[in-house]
Amino acid sequence: MAQLASKQFLLPNTRQSIKASVQEVLDFVINSLPAGVNTEGISFKIEVIIIELLTNGIKHAGTIETFLDVTINEDNINIDKKDFGNRFHPGNITSLLVYDVGHKELLTKDGLHSMYAVVESDTQIRFVCEEENGDEVLDVSNLMEHFGLLIITKSSDTFTYEYDVDTGLNTFSVIIDLN
């Protein structure tokens, strides 16, 4: 798989800087895309993914800066958000990584979606979103109010989280297929 472009961004972890950070990354991606790709569709995905990755970092990581590695390949875009901040505990679960590979843990559920974390290895989980079929009357009082993980999962083709116990490195990795 041919790599077309790659860049590491060091971005401030502040609310005020998100818009400028998103534009900086978006400009790089759009200018690096292979010919024939639907730029408008990709722009929307990149924008919402970067907004949510950075917002998640501000909420949970507790670091001053965050690294964003963006790689454009012929077939996909790979975005890795890295920080050495607090370990991420989706769904307030102490550690999903103690489960066997393939274990599927329900994180949140309402009448529209179910969000799961699937254990991929002893250091990595993958987020999966399933849409509810909507046959039943929607219970509005049960609607979720946290959409960050859901937005990233539904905007990408693969979304994983990896924690390196030895170094304390958190890596959120997003892949968007271009074909």
Partner: peptide, 20 residues
Amino acid sequence: EYIDSSFLGSIVSVFKHLIS
């Protein structure tokens, strides 16, 4: 021009309040 998941959550929260 720009909305994030936190604000989306706030809209849902006030919706649930008013619906009640």
